[in-house]
Amino acid sequence: MAEQRVHYIHHLSYSARERLVGVFVLVALAVIFGLIFINSRTSHLLEERITYHVYLKNAQGVSTESIVKVSGIEVGRVSSIDIAPDNRVHLELFVYQRFHNLLRADSRGSLSKLSVLGKAVIDISAGSVSAPLLPEGATLSIEEPKSLDELMADLAPVLEKVRQIVDGVATLVQAVDPADVATTSREMARTLESLRLVSAQIASGKGALGQAVFSAEAEHKVTSSLSSLETVLHKADQRLSEMRPLLANASAITDEGRTTTQELSALVVETKQLVNQMNTAMGTVNVELQQMPELVSRMKLLMDSTDRTLQGLQRIWPLSAAVPAVRDDILLEAQPLHD
């Protein structure tokens, strides 16, 4: 009778078997991490690339990690950034060979609006099929978005004009002497008081109207009132003469204000466009937010799964030796009353 051969695993101690399983797990983990590393770093390693050049006045938000897209598809990346002899920013970017057909002579590029926020994407429009292919090393024309500084620079003249208007109004207010105004007011008050006395005497019924009017006292009072009124009118005329240049200046200021208002309306239109763009962006974010509950549920499932995986790993050598085992009892130990 032939001797039955026993598998070597049965000759190993429990500890040795545990170590063997541990080695298997560690090797598997190393392979997985290696694959992930290789995949992320070399997924396009063997692809052929075509290089293009771009010149920009402002490369805000652009880095060597910036993505190049054609019609929304990622087709390449920015490979280097340097300064051209004419002090513009020179970008060298590459596009994978398989997307070369998309780039034609009529392709136009643009820097994404988000570049002012620090994450630029170079978006190139797919050229028409009838146009010739864009040759390697060609220069792409890129439409640059306005930077924050430029937007602020556009606003600066408007603000300057507003400041001038405010200055003009301040000058106008300063030209009027409060003391003169007070004097004029007092004299007018006196005149009005005299007029009130005259009308009171006429209305008093002391005699006929002719008697009141032709009496010497009344005549004197009327003469005095007229004299005061003449003085007041003279002074008022004088003040108006002094104010004429100021009023002419105010007219010029008003004209400037009108021009400014016209520019402001253009700015308002631009602002409206910006708000519309922001609304669109918020709409996109809103859609993302609506997906949050599902995302949270999936995360919970993932966390549960990870938890189970980690608990399983902790039971395998060498982790089992390093991590103290948690006693997963479901019933508390019996204990006496403290008091």
């Binding site: 399983v21 298997f24 797990v25 598997a28 392979v31 694959l35």
Partner: peptide, 15 residues
């Protein structure tokens, strides 16, 4: 890549 993935799957399957 397919060879490595298969190898990893076999190794993990053993554990």
């Amino acid at each position: 890549k397919p060879v490595l993935i298969t190898l990893a799957a076999v190794l993990l399957g053993a554990c």
